[in-house]
Simulated assay, not measured.
Amino acid sequence: MKKLALFTLLTLFSAVAGAQKHEPLPHGMVYGNKPDTAAMMQASKLEDFMGKKTRITTAIAGKVLRVTKPKGGWFEMDAGNGRIISAHFYNAGISIPRALAGRTVIISGIAAKQFIADDMQHLAGDTVSGKKQHRVKTNPKRVVTFEVKGMMIDQ
């Protein structure tokens, strides 16, 4: 009976100790290709830098908000003013740890704007005039996605 209790305690202790191990994420750790930091900018300045372009190749630095899917490297990055950059790795074989959330990283790859219209009626050719006329939104919601070729942990 004492052996069974001791075995149960040791098993429980080893399970708890094993669950608390964290993967170390040292400064400079690279996933994918090492990003070129020569022309790097802050993630909050990306949309202004893109201007009217819909796609550019660049390197940005920013804080990871959360890792949505570790396998394939899907994560969200803070773009400032409540905006989010949705990012994923070009190479789907890369896995990133969930502990990356809250860390500052440098990523390089292709940034792309995706336009989402708030009122899709104007795309359907609505030609109604008078009281039923729909107002066309001039500023559609913009979402920036980032296809990551390489990432390096900065802080």
Rank of each mutant, 00 (worst) to 15 (best):
R98T: 10
A124W: 09
I116A: 14
R142A: 11
G109P: 05
A101V: 06
K71Y: 09
V128N: 08
H134K: 15
K45V: 10
K141T: 12
P70F: 00
I85P: 01
R66I: 10
I94Q: 02
T8Q: 10
P97W: 00
D48Q: 15
M40W: 07
G73C: 02
G18W: 13
R66F: 07
A5E: 13
K131C: 07
H134L: 09
H88K: 15
A19S: 03
V144T: 06
H22A: 13
T54M: 15
G125S: 02
M120L: 15
F13T: 14
K141G: 04
R103I: 00
A124K: 14
P97M: 01
A39R: 12
N81C: 05
G28T: 08
H27M: 12
L4E: 11
G28M: 08
K63P: 06
V67P: 04
H22N: 12
V16Y: 05
M29G: 05
Q42W: 12
L12W: 04
A39K: 15
K2N: 11
M40D: 04
I107G: 06
A92K: 15
M40S: 10
G102D: 04
G18Q: 06
A111P: 06
L9A: 04
D118K: 15
A19F: 02
M1I: 11
A87H: 03
T54G: 08
A15S: 08
V136D: 08
F7R: 11
K53F: 04
G62P: 00
D119E: 09
A112I: 12
V16L: 15
G109H: 07
G62N: 04
G150L: 00
P24I: 05
H122P: 06
L100I: 07
G32I: 04
S95H: 05
G93W: 07
G102C: 06
A112W: 08
D154M: 09
K131H: 09
I116K: 15
P70D: 01
G125Q: 03
L25A: 04
Q155A: 09
M151V: 00
A59N: 08
T8H: 09
F13S: 12
G130R: 00
A92Q: 14
N139F: 14
F115G: 10
G73P: 01
M152K: 13
G125D: 04
P97G: 01
K34S: 11
I106C: 09
F115Q: 13
Q133D: 09
R103S: 06
T68W: 03
K2Y: 12
V143F: 07
K3P: 02
T104E: 10
N139V: 13
